[in-house]
């Protein structure tokens, strides 16, 4: 499937500074994405998944230091000028944000906001832009598109606003969609509709998707490959089926087992002791060591790096969980 990756992220690091201390928000994140593939980034709050997304599109460079390499169809994005980047953002790479309530301009009609993208990125005429905007609203499942074009964001419900966001993002037919928790603020029934829509459109337009979420269920249902992040680093990545079925990193396993599914009701849930570390005081060795049951003396002092453990499967752990037969097959 990955004949030619369209997006290659290599050793991406993003550092913020607060009062003289350097905060390593993202460290050495690497992954590649093929055409039409869906890659998930999953982790708890503060694990660096959103910052990774923003670093890819060059949004994080305004308030942090970004190093490493992001290659988009052969072009290097990290060193590109703002001017060049602006041509790529929205046209080739689009992004949707978590909060459909705050990411639309409340003072402009929905139609104006979709047409804005088209004016910037296509050479369509006025009439054609309007037709395209109606077509887009239709496409994302908003009924009576022509009349709703004249309405303002407050006249739309949360799910409908997220559809508008998707319509804006996809108006210029991008090749890559970066979705930052697109369904977190929505109800489960609406979440199912939106995720289905994103998958359907990705398939139709053979568009790659990077999906950030904290919900392992969403990952299981939508992604092809997944990277699990903890304290700014990828601790495990590979094909979704393998990572979720047979996690090799103790953190991934802990996350999976904390979700109450297939456990006897009203029994004690498995829980990862402690809380995620603060970026201000990261442990010297493996960031997960203080919460890990498998941690040995080496974990306290040295940091494990991502190692290949199977084709297309990597984990960063000195004491990975045993592989099962399914994994080896």
């Amino acid at each position: 499937m990955t004949d030619h990756p369209i997006l290659e992220v290599e050793n991406l690091c993003t550092t913020f500074s607060r009062g003289g201390t350097a905060l390593p928000a993202v460290r050495d994140v690497s992954f590649a994405l093929g055409k039409g593939q869906v890659q998930g980034l999953v982790g708890e709050s503060g694990s660096g998944k959103s910052v990774t997304l923003r670093s890819i599109l060059g949004l994080a460079r305004h308030y942090g230091e970004v190093s490493g390499s992001v290659r988009w169809q052969g072009q290097e994005l990290t060193t590109m000028s703002e001017r060049q980047l602006r041509k790529i953002r929205g046209r080739e790479i689009a992004m949707i944000f978590q909060e459909p309530m705050t990411s639309l301009n409340p003072l402009l009609t929905v139609g104006t906001q979709i047409k804005e993208t088209l004016t910037a990125h296509t050479d369509l005429g006025r009439r054609a832009r309007r037709d395209r905007a109606i077509e887009m609203l239709d496409h994302v499942g908003i009924p009576a598109a022509a009349t709703r074009l004249e309405e303002y964001p407050h006249q739309f419900s949360g799910g409908m606003r997220q559809r508008v966001m998707i319509a804006i993002a996809l108006a210029a037919s991008p090749k890559l969609l970066l979705a930052d928790e697109p369904t977190t603020a929505l109800d489960v029934t609406i979440q199912a509709q939106i995720l289905d829509l994103i998958l359907k459109l990705a398939d139709e337009m053979s568009m790659g998707v990077v999906l950030v979420t904290h919900d392992l269920g969403v990952v299981a249902q939508t992604c092809d490959t997944v990277s699990v992040m903890y304290a700014g680093r990828v601790v495990e990545q590979g094909a979704v089926r393998q990572v979720l079925r047979t996690p090799r990193h103790p953190y991934t396993e802990g996350l999976m087992r904390s979700v109450p599914q297939d456990v006897p009701p009203r029994t004690q849930l498995y829980s990862v002791p402690g809380t995620p570390p603060s970026l201000f005081s990261l442990p010297e060795g493996c960031a997960f060591a203080p919460r890990c049951q498998a941690a040995g003396p080496a974990c306290q002092t040295a940091r494990p790096t991502l190692q290949d453990i199977a084709p297309g499967r990597q984990t960063a752990c000195f004491h990975p969980l045993p592989a099962t037969q399914e994994d080896a097959a």
């Binding site: 799910g159 489960v188 029934t189 199912a192 289905d196 269920g217 299981a220 089926r241 979720l244 599914q261």
Partner: peptide, 25 residues
Amino acid sequence: QALLSAAPSLDPDDKGAAIQLEGEL
């Protein structure tokens, strides 16, 4: 029925069984 089937399952192979609800609350 629709509410329960909308919750995404942790099993990647358990796709497509969801009852899609039309519209919103």
